[in-house]
Design a protein around this nucleic acid. Structure first.
Ligand SMILES: [Mn+2]
Ligand SMILES: [Mn+2]
Ligand SMILES: [Zn+2]
Ligand SMILES: [Zn+2]
Lengths: 136, 136
DNA sequence: TTATATTTGCAACGCTGTTGCAGAAACATG
DNA sequence: CATGTTTCTGCAACAGCGTTGCAAATATAA
């Protein structure tokens, strides 16, 4: 796994303790994390700083939103190929309705775009809901 | 199309002007509607009443959430078969990133549940993102 | 070490949605 | 139709998530 500080430098971001900590937390988590999830792991941090940090990381292609149908933004690491220019994510997200955890999963195939539709399709999000391993 | 007042009676709900109006608005809309979308169509209505009305309708199986990846709840009519006991929806939702509209669509096949997974799958949501007919 | 650019924390705010409670309205009953 | 009971509505207050403006703190370049 790439060093957090290296990732920051690679994206022309200043290496600060908040950013390093946030990135380490997301790197080492098997679940997608919300601003609040992160805040709870800190001794002292301003939640506004976390929101901005997450937004910055997302813009740079370091992390991506894990859309899970709740009204809370959660984030997980991007794959190597992602950049400011393009996020490439062809995986679904699993949301546990018991513990509210959200995971990136590759178990389910995302269907191809329909050939002809009245809509111009750009991306498809898939949210799988159910019970996670720990909860069943 | 079934009369709004009849639908209310069928579900043992009192026929009030707010409920009738809300139901008519959702029935006649091709898009999923948020509490705010509804409020703007009223002369005077309390937004709290709208939230409660929507929740009541959802519980009764009259309307369903159109999950679109935004942090706003939008609702559309249920199919005939829905009830308090079970909502049956096997369709995807399209979200236009230009005008923020959300539509129920049947163009895209929702994939089958994976045979074996570490997760216990209950439902799958699909969100298709792109540009709608009016916006392109 | 100093100067500059960037980041952080604080304050204030907006939006979506919820709960408690009292008055208003719907409807069942006679 | 009149009345009583149940349900709904509107108001007030609140909670949570996220954003913006600004000044102080910090990272980095020189
Ligand atoms: Mn993911
Ligand atoms: Mn729908
Ligand atoms: Zn779980
Ligand atoms: Zn559109």
């Amino acid at each position: 796994m790439k060093l957090a500080s290296e990732i920051l430098k690679d994206h022309n971001l200043r290496v600060t303790s908040v950013r390093e900590e946030v990135l380490k937390m997301i790197q080492s988590s098997d679940k997608a994390l919300s601003s609040n999830d992160l805040e709870m792991q800190f001794d002292h941090v301003d939640r506004i700083t976390l929101y901005r940090t997450l937004k910055t990381f997302e813009t740079k292609g370091i992390i991506h939103k894990a859309v899970d149908g709740t009204n809370v933004q959660k984030y997980a690491m991007c794959v190597e190929g992602c950049s400011e220019a393009s996020h490439q994510h062809q995986h679904a997200h699993f949301h546990c309705d018991s513990c509210n955890s959200t995971f990136c999963i590759d178990d389910i195939q995302i269907p191809a775009f329909p050939k002809q539709s009245s809509f111009q399709v750009k991306t498809i999000e898939m949210i799988v809901k159910g019970t996670c391993v720990e909860c069943r």
